[in-house]
């Protein structure tokens, strides 16, 4: 319930109506949306019980590693039940054709694989918020100073997931494990996304805000 309460308000993409439709416009809209999402996700992280007790460098290391996983998991959850469309925001939904035009077809396919996985699992909102916190705590940064503290955070979130699943699905003893087993695909997809946006950044044709750039550079 704490994580449900900490879940950020929805953000709108607000594509610039003055710009003609193009791949540049689509990517500009997504990068701007991502930058604003990152600000609220950092605020969200601080509300995860135990996160703020980590040292500031360790909080930074986890976020620098997991930020794209968090962004993608939010898109995936919004897209559940939307036939083959990615809901980046309520006012910004992309189908395969639009993704292709934006040069995002590989990413579209990868994210859709996650959407299908969670659709077949019938992911609950409670499980989603817990899994998202686990993705952050499980970021596997190489720069963690206090592993014991991070492991304590992982353990408490894992316990929360198990408890939650045992209440929601008492008949299914495998469910927590099945949810955890979706995380490698999330990490793989996030790595693809970071690589893709690093290439776009190199290209220099799409304006990007500072926080988004800063986090992309953390992976460079």
């Amino acid at each position: 319930s704490h994580l449900l309460g900490a879940e950020p308000e929805k953000i709108y993409a607000m594509p610039d109506p003055a710009l003609p439709d193009s791949d540049i416009k689509a990517l500009t809209t997504l990068c701007d949306l991502a930058d604003r999402e990152l600000v609220v996700n950092i605020g969200w992280a601080k509300h995860i019980p135990g996160f703020s007790s980590l040292s500031l460098p360790d909080q930074m290391s986890l976020l620098q590693s997991a930020w794209m996983e968090i962004l993608i998991l939010r898109v995936v959850f919004r897209s559940l039940g939307c036939e083959d469309q990615l809901v980046f925001a309520e006012d910004y939904v992309m189908n395969e054709e639009q993704a292709k035009l934006a040069g995002l077809q590989d990413l579209y396919t990868a994210i859709l694989q996650l959407v299908r996985k969670y659709t077949s699992i019938k992911l609950h909102r409670e499980e989603f918020v817990t899994l998202k916190a686990i993705a952050l705590a499980n970021a596997d940064s190489m720069h963690i100073e206090d592993w014991v503290a991070v492991q304590r955070l992982q353990d408490s979130l894992h316990a929360a997931l198990q408890e939650l699943v045992s209440v929601l699905h008492p008949e299914d003893g495998q469910r927590a494990g099945r949810l955890i087993m979706t995380l490698p695909l999330l990490r793989q997809t996030a790595a693809k996304a970071v690589q893709h946006f690093c290439n776009i950044k190199q290209d220099g044709r799409v304006p990007m805000h500072k926080l988004f750039l800063e986090l992309l550079e953390a992976h460079a």
């Binding site: 605020g43 601080k46 926080l211």
Partner: peptide, 15 residues
């Protein structure tokens, strides 16, 4: 750490 000043600042701000 110098390179990550916005993240640093956002984490330090109380929300």
């Amino acid at each position: 750490k110098e390179k990550h000043k916005i993240l640093h600042r956002l984490l330090q701000n109380s929300t």
